[in-house]
Amino acid sequence: DFFNNQDEYLKNYDKVVFTGMIDQYFDYCYGELEYRSLKFETEELDQDNFQGNAVVNYTDAKTPFTRIIEHKHFEFGKGDKNKTIITREYPKTWHRGDEPYYPVNNSANNALYKKYKELADAKADNIIFGGRLGQYRYYNMDQVIGAALVTVEKELD
């Protein structure tokens, strides 16, 4: 946990990459940003294959979960041929202490994030805020890699 060793990190390193929640970093001084969390339900099934691939997303309003992950497809067929393990992901409202997964980008939250960003620019020049939580932005994997490369180029310039 960054906050357990924060003083040591800030004292011993010229730059620190912080990928946690930017509002938490500043002790929620302007209030909490909203996040979406997830609830996971894992099930072992007595069958070789459940859905034929690793991830199926569900976008209809009637399905209570957003995706099903079938783990064996990440393992390239390893494991018990007569069983499979699936995990359903359900959206969950985030509360302080929960694991945040996604920012809730709306006008109110984006305005609040802007205040935290301005504070970071003014007071935390040795901290690089990155990722979905540090930059309060939804990223796909290609976007997060692109953002990381831009940050590295800026920092090494």
Rank of each mutant, 00 (worst) to 15 (best):
I85Q: 07
R132T: 05
I127S: 08
L133W: 06
N106W: 13
S107A: 12
N109I: 06
W94I: 07
Y90A: 01
R132Y: 09
A108Y: 06
D125R: 15
K114V: 00
Y113V: 01
I127L: 08
L119V: 06
K123N: 15
E118P: 02
I86D: 03
R132V: 06
N109Y: 07
T84K: 05
A122Y: 01
K117Q: 15
N106F: 10
Y113R: 01
F129V: 07
E99N: 15
D98P: 04
Y113N: 00
P91D: 00
A124L: 12
P103F: 07
N126D: 14
A124P: 11
K92P: 00
D125V: 10
W94E: 10
N105Q: 15
P100R: 13
P91I: 00
K115W: 01
G131E: 11
G130M: 14
K83V: 08
P100T: 13
R132W: 05
V104M: 10
I128C: 10
Y136V: 10
K114T: 04
N109D: 05
D125Y: 08
F129P: 09
L112H: 07
Y101M: 13
K83S: 12
Y101F: 15
K83Y: 06
A120V: 07
D121C: 03
K123V: 10
I127M: 10
N109F: 05
P100Y: 12
W94Q: 10
A108H: 12
K114Y: 00
R88G: 03
N106I: 11
L112G: 04
N126M: 08
N105W: 01
T84R: 05
N126Q: 15
K92G: 01
L119C: 12
T84A: 08
P91A: 00
L119E: 13
K92N: 03
N110T: 11
